[in-house]
Amino acid sequence: MKIHPKGFSTITLFSLVMLLFTSFLSTSLNLSYPYKLIPWGIMLILIIGFLLFFRNPQRELTVDPLSIISAADGKVVAIERRMEKEYFHEERLVIAVFMSIYDVHVNTVPIAGKVVYTKHHPGKNYPAINPKSSDLNERYTTVITSGQTSLLVRQIAGIAARRIHLSVTEGDTVKQGQELGIIKLGSRVDIYLPTEVEVVTKIGEQVTAGQSILARFPS
């Protein structure tokens, strides 16, 4: 299992805390064998579960210049028109994908093109399922242009997530499906699309970053 490099420090700290706590608990309870193994078994399960937060699986990517590919693993929770106030200043079609703690948290680039804008916004940590998290939570905005079209990807931290790491910078030429970044411990990715696209996903659908088609550009 491949682990994302941005998870190493968090995993190390979590493992150290769990090791110290379990050692203290095991000594304090003065358990006899084999019961003394129970706290250590629970610790091992928790550490393995924490490792899964930062897994970065290798996948066969969907590459199609007319398709917008999901930037995140998770469930589609919104498909709606919304005014985009940061960059486009116009109404856009938004497809929002919510990442649970069980999903891969590495995000990918939905279309090939050029990164023309990135900005980090400090913010609050409302539950990412809440629509107002898109404007109030910590988030990273990335705009990608391709030919005559462009889209905006907004990575949003949630109630558990505390850090967003972006893997691209302004001026980068990016490929469809390459790594965009990672949101530690979750939460949500909104994609702001031109209103004329054809949506092929639906609310409630489970999608996969780099593989699932969310919408198509007019041919």
Rank of each mutant, 00 (worst) to 15 (best):
S133V: 01
A72E: 08
A209N: 01
T141Y: 11
Y117I: 03
V109F: 13
M99A: 05
A112Y: 00
H165M: 13
A160Y: 14
T118I: 10
I159P: 02
T141V: 15
Y87N: 09
N130H: 09
N125E: 13
Y102D: 11
T149N: 13
S187G: 08
V189I: 14
L166E: 03
E198V: 10
T208M: 09
V199R: 06
S212P: 11
H120Q: 12
I159K: 09
A161T: 00
K124M: 15
E91S: 12
V174A: 07
R139W: 04
L185E: 02
I183N: 01
I95H: 01
V106Q: 08
R139G: 08
H105C: 02
H105T: 00
G210I: 05
I183S: 01
H120A: 12
V207D: 02
Q211D: 08
L166T: 11
S150L: 10
G123D: 02
P127H: 02
T208V: 14
G147E: 06
G177I: 05
V189T: 13
G204E: 08
E170R: 13
K132D: 11
D190Y: 07
L214H: 05
G147W: 02
D135A: 13
G177Q: 02
Y117M: 01
I203K: 15
H165D: 14
L180Y: 09
G181M: 11
E86W: 13
I101M: 14
K85W: 08
I191T: 14
P194D: 07
A72D: 08
I101S: 14
K114E: 15
L151D: 02
M83Q: 11
Y87Q: 09
I111F: 03
I68V: 15
V199Y: 06
E170M: 12
I203D: 06
Q206L: 13
V168E: 01
I69L: 03
L185Q: 11
G181H: 11
I164N: 03
S70W: 10
A160Q: 10
Q211P: 11
T195Q: 13
